[in-house]
Every structure is written in C-alpha cells, then in structure tokens.
C-alpha cells in the first residue's frame, strides 16, 4: 500500500534521513520506533508532503506522493495525525471534526455519527471548545478528525505523547480497533513496548537510517531492542 524507496531528506545542509526504504502492506499496523532525533517524524512529515524530500520515491497505492500537493494527499485517503495533538483549540469539537471532512463533505453526517459512536466522550463534549478538553480527549479528537476523511491509511505520530499510562492504553486500544475496521496504520512511537505489542511489523531507526526490521512480536524478544528501547 505504501512503499518508500531510498528516501533522503535534509534540513538545510544537514541530511536527516539517509536512504530509508520501508513498506506498509494493506491492513497492517507497522510501527517505526527509535530514539529522539532518529528521523521518525521527518519521515511522516515527508510522506504527507509537509516536508520536501531530496531524493527517493514514496508510492501510495501507485500514486507518487512526492509529486502530489500536500493539500491533495488527503484526497488519496491518506490521513495524518500530527505529533503533539494538533487540534483547533478555539473551535468546538464538532467543528474540529467538520474540518477533518474538509476535502470530502459528502457523508459528513454519517462519518460524524461513526466517530461519535466510537468516542462517546467526544459526543458528550460536542459543543465544547476543543482547547478545554483533556490531553487524552484531544488525542481522541485528533484521531477522530483523521477518521472523518474516511482514510484507507492513517499516519500516527506519537499518539502516546504526554498521556498518562492509563490513557496510553486506551489510545492504543483505539488504534487497534481502527485497524480492525480495515484501516492501515503507520505508527511512529517512542513507547516501543506498547507500539510493538499492537503492531504486525516494525522498523527500528537510528540517526536517519533503518537499522532493523521484522516481525513486531519477534522484535519484542530481541536482545538488542530490549537493551536499547525497552530498558531491560
């Protein structure tokens, strides 16, 4: 579904991503783990067109994303939940969700009903300003907004960031649930243990390169991963 080949991205003169290749198949949850500054977020930002690539290729369902306008990428049904809960704080929960259906408002009412069914907390707070929601609710709203575009695939950037352990669990069960409905997920996480436990496959990144890849379950048991990311 998503295929990245030999991607290189730089910030000014500094190359942050050195020839990364990865692949996400239909219906999978794939996680991309690694330390701070490894380039995980940069990859997601490049996929959704917020950052320009130097070279390489990103194909999504056969479409070349590097040649697609950022605002058109969502039309290909690829949604991005950005890092750090980017919601519209001065707009109501409902308006936030409406913005998610910005490019395609046809089935908005039905989609919104779906989202509200999945996140009953959001329904209760429909008319509340999004900035007044708790951290976990804001993250749910960000996921809900991405779902409003009826995506085939969602890019999730650090959904567990700044949430309590209980909420982290909840968010991850939401991710799994979303995936069960047939939406492919590429997950970027620092919380390697949680990410690996819900993923099918995983890639480990270090300073702009992929150093390991494989089955997520096996990786949980891998000594190098354990030592570097799981603190065991």
């Amino acid at each position: 579904m998503l295929k990245i080949t030999n991607l290189a991205v730089s910030y000014g003169a500094i190359e942050a991503i050195h020839g990364v290749s990865l692949e996400v198949h239909d219906g999978e949850i794939v996680s991309l783990i690694g330390a701070n500054g490894a380039g995980k977020t940069t990859i997601l930002r490049t996929i959704s067109g917020l950052k320009k690539a130097d070279k390489g290729e990103i194909l999504f369902d056969g479409a070349d994303l590097l040649k697609t306008e950022p605002s058109k990428i969502i039309n290909l049904k690829l949604a991005h939940v950005p890092e750090g809960r980017h919601i519209f704080p001065q707009m109501t929960v409902e308006e936030n969700l409406e913005m998610g259906a910005f490019t395609d408002g046809k089935d908005m009412a039905a989609n919104m009903a779906d989202v509200f069914e999945r996140f009953s907390r959001l329904k209760e707070r429909k008319k509340q300003l999004a900035g007044t929601l708790s951290g976990g609710e804001q993250q749910m709203l960000a996921v809900g907004r991405a779902l409003m575009a009826k995506p085939k695939m969602i890019l999730m950037d650090e959904p567990s960031m700044g949430l309590s352990p209980l909420l982290v669990k909840e968010i991850f069960s939401i991710i799994r649930e979303v995936n069960k409905k047939g939406i492919t997920i590429l997950l970027v996480e620092q919380n390697a243990k949680m990410a690996l436990s819900i993923s099918n496959r995983a890639y480990v990144m270090e300073t702009g390169k992929i150093t390991m890849e494989g089955n997520a379950g096996e990786m949980l048991k891998d000594d190098r991963v354990k030592k570097a990311y799981l603190g065991q």
Partner: peptide, 8 residues
C-alpha cells in the same frame, strides 16, 4: 499543521 494535515 493540523489544517494542512486535514487537506487545507
């Protein structure tokens, strides 16, 4: 950022 992620 959220706006451009929503396709605006």
């Amino acid at each position: 950022i959220a706006a451009s992620a929503s396709g605006i």
